[in-house]
Design a binder for these strands. Sequence first.
DNA 1: TCAGAGATTGGGAACGGTCCCAAAGTCTAG
DNA 2: CTAGACTTTGGGACCGTTCCCAATCTCTGA
Lengths: 352, 352
Amino acid sequence: MAETANGPHPGALHLGTLPTLEAVAAIAGVSKSTVSRVINDSTVVSADAKARVEAAIAELGYAPNRAARSLARRRSDSLAVIVHESDATLFSDPFFGRIVRSISQALANSEVQLVLLLAQTDADCARVERYVRQGHSDGVLLVSAHGDDPLAIALATAEVPTIMAGRPLFDASLPYVDSDNRTGARMAVEHLVQRGRGVIATVAGPADMSAGVDRLAGYRDGLRAAGANYRRSLVEYGDWTAESGHRAMRALLAREPAIDAVAVASDLMAVGALQALREADRDVPGQVAVVGFDDTPLWSWGYGAVPLTTVRQPVEQIGTEMTSRLRDYLEGRAPTIDSVTLPTELIVRQTT
Amino acid sequence: MAETANGPHPGALHLGTLPTLEAVAAIAGVSKSTVSRVINDSTVVSADAKARVEAAIAELGYAPNRAARSLARRRSDSLAVIVHESDATLFSDPFFGRIVRSISQALANSEVQLVLLLAQTDADCARVERYVRQGHSDGVLLVSAHGDDPLAIALATAEVPTIMAGRPLFDASLPYVDSDNRTGARMAVEHLVQRGRGVIATVAGPADMSAGVDRLAGYRDGLRAAGANYRRSLVEYGDWTAESGHRAMRALLAREPAIDAVAVASDLMAVGALQALREADRDVPGQVAVVGFDDTPLWSWGYGAVPLTTVRQPVEQIGTEMTSRLRDYLEGRAPTIDSVTLPTELIVRQTT
DNA sequence: TCAGAGATTGGGAACGGTCCCAAAGTCTAG
DNA sequence: CTAGACTTTGGGACCGTTCCCAATCTCTGA
C-alpha cells in the first residue's frame, strides 16, 4: 500500500494526460465557466462561443472528468443494481440476467453508470446496505429473490430512492414494477377449462414470495370462475427449480391420478413436471395438459419435450420500466415513484 | 436540465448531510491530514491519535466520499466489466452470468466497484470504448463472445489495463484467462476410446472462436493418439445453440450411420444432439455415447434426458483469476498481466 | 443621450479528499 | 549539552468540475 501510494501508479499513468476543461477553455479562448455552460447545454452562450468551444472539445477529444463532476454536483450519476439471491438455487434462472440486461440497455444512451452489486451472504447484504446508505449512488434498482428481503426493508427506511423488481410481500412502502401474475395464472386456468379439462392441479411457487402467492391466487380465481365443477383445488408447492417441479408433479399424481391438466408456476418447474409425467407414462397433451409461466426462451421451446404453452411475463419491460421510473424521479420529472403492474399474456403452444 | 440544475435535486437531498473528513478531524481534535492517514492505514500515526480518530469515525458513521477520493488520487477505484455478446443467440447461456457473478464475488470485500457495461450493437461498442478510453475506470475485464472482437483490438491499442475471458483468436497482445479446452476435448475422446467406441464424431463450435477451434483441435488430438483405427474425423459445426446441435447431429448420422460416440463442444449443443439421437431411435449410451463440454449445472443434470457426461471448465475460477491478475497489476504487485490456462476435468455421468 | 433591462461572460469559492513539505517533538550519541 | 536523526503532526496546494455573483456589453425606448 505504501509502495503504490508513493510510486507512480502503473495503471493510472494515462490518466494524467487526459485533457481538462481548462485546456479546452484555453484553446477556445474563453473561460472555464463558458466551457462548462456549453457542456451542460446552458442556453446563455453565444453561438460564436459555443462553436469555438465545441471545436476545441473535438480537437482535444475532451470528456468531463466524472469524479470532479460528481464532487461538484454532489451526485454520482450512477445507479446501483442490487441483485439479492440468497439461494444458489436460482443460479441458473435467466431472470436475473434478463433484468440486468434490460436495465443496462435502458441506461445505454445516458451518462448514468450501472454499478452492479451482488449480494448472497448476510455479510454481502450489510456491505451493500452500507454502500448505498453512504450515498455512493443516486438510486437503487433492487432485484430480489425474496418477498421479505431485509435489504428491501433497510432501503425503505434509508433515504435512498429505490425501486424493486416484483412486488414486495411485506408491503414496505417501496415502489415496484411487477407483472400481473394473478391475471396471468387465471388466464392459464381459463384456457385449460376451455380446452375441456376437468381436473386442474397446480404446482405453486414458494408461499413467501409475491410471485408464488399471486400466481396461486390467480389459479384459485380461475377455478372459482369456472364454476361448481371446479371447486376442488389441487396444490403442491415448489421452489422454482426443475427438481421441485418434478417432485411436486409426482405428489400431485399420487394424490389424484385423474388429473388431466396442471398449471405450473414457472417454466423451469414445468420442465420438471413434464419429466414426471413422462415417467408416469402420461401423454402430454393427450392425457395431461401443461401450462408454464415466464416464457423463458430456451425452456419454452421444449428441448426434451413438446414446446410449452405458457404465460409470458415481460421481463425486459420490467427492467426498462424500473429504470425510467427511477430516473424520472431523480431528474425531477416525477414527484414520486409509483408502482406499476404490467400485463401478462398467454402463449399457446403444444402442451395444451 | 436547467430545472434540475437550479432547484435542489430531489434524489440528492440526503447527500448534503453526510459527514466529511473535516468533521471527523474536528471531533477527534486532529488535522485532516491525520484523519486521512488513519483511513489509509498509514503507519506514521500515534496509537493515541489513531484511537481518537477511529472513535470519531464510528461516532459519525463516516465514510470517505468516493468522488473526492477519485479526484485527488486520480484513480476511479472501479473496474469495468464489459460483456460483448453481439448475438442474442447467447442470450440464454449462463456462462456470462456465472463469470460476472464470480468477478463480483472476487471484488466483494474490496473498495473496488464493478461497473457493468453491456455491448450488443456497434453503437454500444463505440460508446463503451469511449467510456473506457476516457479513463473512467482503472481497468477492464472483457467478456466477449467473439474471437476477433473489435472491442478487444481497440482496448489492446488503448492504454487501459485489460484482461480477457477466453483466449482471443487474433492474437492481440491482450492477456487472458482461459480454460484448457484442447486438453479437455482430448480427454473426452480418450474416454470414449476407453469405453470401446469405434466411430467417434464431433459437433464443433464456431471456427472463429478460440473455444471452438481449441476443442476441435483437442478432438483431433484424441483421435490421433488413439491410433490408426481412428484416423477418420467426423466434424459438423454448430453455433453453441441447442438447435444447431440438433441439426449437426442429424447431419452426422446422415453422413455416417455407424457412429457410436460423439464429443459435443458444449452442453447446450449436446442437449440438441441428444434430442436428435432420440428422434433417430438411438439409445444413449447403449448405441451412441455422448460427451458434452462446460458442465453447465442445469443441463448436465439431464432434464429430458440422461445425466450428461461432460468436460467441466472452471467458469467461476476464470472470473476470480481475471480479477486477481488485473488487480495485482493495478496495485503494483505484478509488473505485467500474464495469461493463464486453467485445467479442465472430465465428469463421467450416464451418457457414456 | 442615457437609464435600465437583458444577454453574455469571467472570476473564484466551493466540493471532499490526498499528499508534499515543513514544523514540532523525542531520542540517541558524541 | 547539543547536533542530528527519527517520529508525528499540521498547513495548504491541488485534483477538475459546478455555479453563484459581479462585470461587461448590447440594445431599446423615453
